[in-house]
Simulated scan of single mutants.
Amino acid sequence: MTDTPTTGPQGGPDPTAAAAASPGTALVAGSAGVIGAHAAAEYARLPGWTVRGAARREQPGVPWRALTADLSSADGAREGLAAARDTTHLVFAAYVERGDELQQVRDNTALLRHTLDALDGAPLRHVTLYQGGKAYGAHLPGFKTPARESDPRLLVPNFYYAQEDLLRAEADRRGFGLTVLRPEGVVGYATGNPMNILMVVAVHAAISRALGVPLRFPGSRAAGEALYQVTDAELLARATVWAGSTPAADGEVFNVTNGDQFRWVHAYAAIARHLGMEHDEPQDFSLTSVMPLHEGTWRRLVDEHGLVPTPYERLVGWPFGDFLFHSGFDNVSSTVKVRRAGFGECLDSVERFCELVDRLVERRVVPAFR
Rank of each mutant, 00 (worst) to 15 (best):
Y160N: 12
Q163P: 07
E164M: 06
D165G: 04
L167E: 00
A171E: 13
D172W: 00
D172Y: 01
R173A: 00
R174P: 08
F176N: 01
F176I: 01
L178F: 12
T179C: 04
T179V: 03
V180T: 12
L181D: 02
L181W: 04
P183V: 07
V187K: 04
V187N: 14
G188V: 02
A190H: 01
T191V: 12
P194V: 14
N196M: 13
I197R: 10
M199Y: 13
M199S: 10
V200E: 15
A202F: 02
A202S: 13
A202W: 00
A202P: 06
V203Q: 10
V203I: 14
A206C: 14
I207M: 07
L211Y: 07
L211N: 11
G212Y: 09
V213K: 11
L215H: 04
L215T: 13
R216Y: 02
R216I: 09
F217S: 06
R221E: 12
G224D: 06
Y228K: 11
Y228N: 11
Q229S: 09
Q229M: 08
V230Y: 04
A233F: 03
A233R: 05
L236H: 06
L236G: 12
A237G: 08
R238K: 08
T240V: 08
W242P: 02
G244P: 03
A248F: 02
A249T: 10
G251F: 01
V253R: 01
V253G: 02
Q261L: 04
Q261I: 10
R263K: 15
V265H: 03
Y268N: 08
I271L: 15
A272I: 11
A272F: 10
D280Q: 08
D284A: 15
F285H: 10
